[in-house]
Design a binder for these strands. Sequence first.
DNA 1: GAAATAGTTAAGCGATGCCTTGACAATTTC
DNA 2: GAAATTGTCAAGGCATCGCTTAACTATTTC
Lengths: 110, 110
Amino acid sequence: MLDYQLDKAFAALADPARRAIVERLVQGPATVSELARPLPMSLPAAMLHLKVLEDCGLVKSRKAGRVRTCRIDPAMLGQVERWVAERRAMWEQNLDRLGAWLDADKPEEP
Amino acid sequence: MLDYQLDKAFAALADPARRAIVERLVQGPATVSELARPLPMSLPAAMLHLKVLEDCGLVKSRKAGRVRTCRIDPAMLGQVERWVAERRAMWEQNLDRLGAWLDADKPEEP
DNA sequence: GAAATAGTTAAGCGATGCCTTGACAATTTC
DNA sequence: GAAATTGTCAAGGCATCGCTTAACTATTTC
C-alpha cells in the first residue's frame, strides 16, 4: 500500500466530525443528508468531510437519482488497524527481548 | 478517554515523519538526535514532531544531563488500535445481520 | 576554561484545513 | 409545470501546520 494513503486515512480519522460519520456508517449505509444532519455545521461543510473520507478510501458512495448513498469500505480501515497493531506488536516483542536479557546473566548483546 | 486526545493521536500519526519516529521507537528508546538524523529536515523541525507525539501521549521522554531519551508509551497506541478495531468489528457485525436477514425469509426487522 | 556536543527557543513564511454564505443543478412530488 | 427536496460548486476568511534560519543554553570533553 502507498504511504500517502495511510497519511490521508490517519488525517481523515483525526477529525471528530469525520469519525462521527464513520461511526454512523459502520451501522450501515446512509445518505449525505442523514450523515450531515447530526453534525454541527452546514451541509457543504459536511460534504467536504465526506469527500476527505472518500479520497482516502475509507468510504465509497453511489448516486441514484438525486440521492447519494454512502457506505464504509472496510479495506482501508483494515490497513489502518494493521499498521497500529503491527507497531504495538513490535514494541511488545522488544519488551520481551529486554525481559529475557534482564533474566539471563547477559547473553550476547552488550 | 477524552476524544480530543484521539484527535491528536490520529493527527500525529498522519505525518510520515512522525510515523517514522514511532517506527524507530518501537524498536527501543532513542535520543533526540538519533531520531532526527534519518529525517529529511532540520533538528528543530524534528523536535516539533517529537513534541506533537509527546503532547498526544504516544511518546514519553526524560532528560539526563544534556541528553533526552525518548520511548513509546504503548497506552495511547492501544487506544488508537482499539478505536479502529471496534469500528471494524461493528461493521462486520452489521454485515452478519444483513446476511442472516437475507438467508432467512424475513424474520423480525422490516 | 575553551571548544565541541546536544538540545531548545524564537521569528517568520508559505501551504493547507475547516467553515461560512450564496448561487445553482438535478430530481421528485403535487 | 411549479414547488420542494437533495446535492454541488465557488469565493473568501481565519486558524493551524510544517519548515527554515539564527541565536542561545546547558553539559561534556580535552
